[in-house]
Design a protein around this nucleic acid. Structure first.
Lengths: 212, 212
DNA sequence: GTTTATTCTCTACAACCATAGAAAATAAAC
DNA sequence: GTTTATTTTCTATGGTTGTAGAGAATAAAC
């Protein structure tokens, strides 16, 4: 009853009026949640506030998310998935250092949208510290990114573009942590600031890989 | 009346009984807060819980911290100060890469105490996103650390131990972000895990600096 | 023991929260 | 218009929180 899927909603046989696409509505609600957290912080993301932001009254959320925790988990997952999709798009067709650069430029908080993403992710981390399920969401994404980075590094090494005398898995960990740190810096910066020198840090790091 | 300082408390002249050292009590309360956040997370750090953890009843905190926000801000500042003091101790008498290594090893979450510190810092970041005053605490500490890192790098360069063709201020930013990222990884890891390969990442990074 | 200033406990309160569910509104099908 | 299943509003409830303040407990000084 709760997890109505797309196909169930569009049953054209029975003469039953059904207007809302549940999956789509869930995304709408997640989007409203996202906006509130980015604008006013996690503590303002109450069920009432989310409902209002999405244009509904208090109780309208329950048919789509049975509890607040369900909603938040879905929302956080969605942000990670969206970023991962963007990464996949941007790195498609690229290899080696070129792909690695595109990957990092897509994750770094270089514009307002990704600074907002950082403002979502940091509250998520706080929740994940004491919630194994949320921590797993993070760890899966990170593991996935580590694999991608290592693949790009291996390609770059084959081509002679990476000569660093340091193991690739260590380099990948360094880079991933740099990206996480950049998100913290961006999330804590005063409203409106978008340049933190992160692009230069990335180029500098790639230069280190080539020369050493 | 609220901000009684050490000196005011120890007035030996008037015949007034006064038992509690207010400054010391504040530290006790901050310590209790610290333990709760490390053990159960920020959301469990209610005034009641903190009072109980410190061995008092609900209302006993108010004479020492007028509001919860005052307490939290003091607590977070204290964690930063403690870390900065440890850094100062450990780097005293060292210079160059040697000092840089000691600095990083002191910040990285390499043992349970510093993993707990990470579990304090991440919730702090979440609060700081929408609180300019708390964000300033973070930014000051980071600025201070950046200066220290740059000094060590300059010393190492003078000695020929750093040959990277990348500006020192960029290197410092990279390293600081790596350290922040490491704290996130540690804070989100399952209870008890203390090895994340961060020490190897540090050695790898220092190797990059020497060779490039 | 009495006095006295301080410290702490305890109860109370108003605000806010997530959640539940009854009732109203809605819109397709006939 | 009527029926019908769905969607949404609205009100209520139980729990938790930060904060306030009266009173009890405490311990030094005499």
């Amino acid at each position: 009853m709760d997890n109505k899927s797309l196909s169930e909603n569009f049953r054209g046989v029975a003469a039953v009026p059904k207007i809302v696409d549940h999956d789509e509505r869930r995304l709408e609600l997640v989007d409203a949640t996202w906006r509130i957290i980015a604008r006013q912080g996690l503590e303002s993301a109450t069920m009432r506030e989310i409902a209002t932001e999405a244009g509904f009254a208090n109780g309208a959320l329950k048919p789509y998310f049975p509890t607040k925790d369900t909603l938040l988990e879905f929302a956080f997952s969605h942000v990670f998935n969206r970023t991962n999709l963007r990464i996949a798009e941007v790195t498609a067709g690229r290899t080696g250092l070129d792909a690695l650069r595109a990957f990092c430029l897509e994750v770094l908080p270089l514009d307002e949208e990704r600074v907002n993403e950082a403002r979502i992710v940091v509250p998520f981390w706080q929740k994940a510290i004491n919630d194994r399920q949320k921590a797993a969401i993070h760890q899966e994404s990170m593991a996935q990114r580590l694999v991608a980075i290592r693949r790009f590094l291996a390609e770059a090494r084959d081509r002679g573009n990476v000569r660093a005398a340091v193991d690739d898995s260590i380099l990948a960990g360094q880079l991933l942590n740099m990206l996480l740190g950049a998100q913290i810096e961006a999330a804590l910066a005063p409203e409106g600031q978008t340049d933190f020198g992160h692009a230069a840090q990335l180029e500098g790091y790639l230069a280190l890989l080539e020369r050493a």
